[in-house]
Structure formats: structure tokens, C-alpha cells
Amino acid sequence: MHTPVSTLRRLLLAAALLAGASCHADVVVIVSAKNPVKALSGEQAADLFLGKSADFPNGLHAVPIDQSEGSPVRDAFYLKTSGKAPAQMKAHWARMLFTGRGQPPVESGDNAAIKRLVADNPNLVGYIDRSALDPSVRAVLSIH
């Protein structure tokens, strides 16, 4: 028979293993090659994607776009920039929506879809796995 403590330990171990698996993604925050922004800090990127800021550091309006929910790249991005797991992100956006303080970034697909959208629009900011980088976009932050 499992005691509540042993069940809790198993759940915590499972959560740690899942978090560790998503942390191995080598994520980069990207902008269009046409965008003049050269770099973002982790805090600036988190602020854009958490709805705390609407502009790049140079004043250009920024529109963050998310990878699809459940994506390992998405989970790694949020965990590493904001310290928030997927359930915490859902709670964050539920609060933001309820209070009228913001809308979550639009989910726009996988690495290829995000890269294609960002390359075509200097106002967009996204994140992809480093392996998907090409000259159409510029990495402004590496997240290890």
C-alpha cells in the first residue's frame, strides 16, 4: 500500500524527470533579420512573453508568438526564462485574462512555422530550437 508521502515522492520524482527532459532543449529567441534589435536579456524576453512589456528595447512594437502547447521547446523556454512550468503558465494567463491585463501570445506552430512567420515580420519575436536557425532570422538570446 502506498502512503500519501510515498505517493507524493513518486509524483515529485516524475515531475523532476519531466522537467529535466525539457531542460535539454537549446532554445534561441529570434527576430527577423530585418529587425534592428541585436540582443535581448532573459528578463526582457520573459517580459515580452508574459505580457509585462509590449515593445523591444529600441521602442519598436513587439508581438510575441508561442510554439504549440506541449512543445518541449516551449516548456524549456518558459521554464528557463521565467521559472514557470506549463501549469504555472496556464495559471498566469488565466489571471491576466481575468483581470483584463493581457492576452497570451498566439500559438503559431513548431520551429519551422515560427521561423517563417518571424522572418517575414520585423515586429514578431519567437523562440525555436537552435538547430532550426538560418539567415532569415537573428538569434537575440540563447537559452541553455
Rank of each mutant, 00 (worst) to 15 (best):
R74G: 01
A87K: 13
T7S: 14
P104R: 14
D26L: 02
S53K: 11
P57G: 11
N58C: 14
I65K: 02
V106Y: 05
G20H: 08
A113I: 06
P105N: 10
S32Y: 03
P86M: 08
I143S: 00
V29W: 00
G20F: 08
R130W: 13
V125D: 00
E69S: 11
R101H: 07
A33S: 11
S68K: 07
A39V: 11
K38N: 15
P36F: 15
L60A: 14
V106S: 09
V27L: 06
V106T: 10
V31H: 01
H24N: 10
V106D: 10
M1F: 11
H144F: 02
A16C: 15
G59M: 14
V31K: 01
Q67M: 04
G102N: 04
S41C: 15
T81E: 09
S22M: 08
L13Q: 14
R10F: 11
A21R: 03
P72Y: 00
K80W: 13
L11K: 10
P57H: 10
A119F: 02
L97I: 14
P4T: 15
I143R: 00
P86A: 07
S108M: 08
A19D: 07
G59D: 11
S22N: 09
A119D: 02
A21L: 08
F98K: 14
D75Y: 01
H92D: 03
A132K: 03
A46I: 03
V73E: 01
A45V: 08
V27H: 00
A94D: 09
L18M: 15
L50Q: 12
V125P: 00
K80S: 14
D129G: 11
S22A: 11
P36I: 15
G83V: 11
S22R: 00
A113G: 08
A132Q: 13
D47G: 12
Q88E: 05
F77W: 06
P72G: 02
G100Y: 07
A85T: 14
A45F: 03
I143M: 00
S136V: 06
M1E: 06
P64H: 05
A113N: 09
G42T: 09
R10W: 12
P72M: 00
A14G: 12
G70F: 03
V31E: 03
K34Y: 13
S53L: 10
S142P: 01
A91V: 05
E43Q: 07
K90T: 03
K52L: 13
N111V: 12
S53V: 11
R116S: 13
F77T: 00
F77Q: 01
S142I: 01
Y127H: 06
G83D: 09
D47K: 10
G51K: 05
A46Y: 00
S82Y: 12
R116P: 09
L40Q: 12
G59K: 15
D134S: 13
P36W: 12
D134C: 13
D120G: 06
L133V: 09
S22K: 03
V73T: 04
L50M: 10
A139D: 00
A54N: 15
F49N: 02
L133R: 03
V137E: 03
K115P: 02
T3D: 14
Y78C: 04
L13W: 12
K115E: 10
G59T: 14
P72A: 01
S22D: 14
D26N: 06
G109P: 06
A15S: 15
V140G: 02
G51M: 10
H2Y: 12
A21P: 06
V63K: 04
L18Y: 09
A15R: 04
A113K: 03
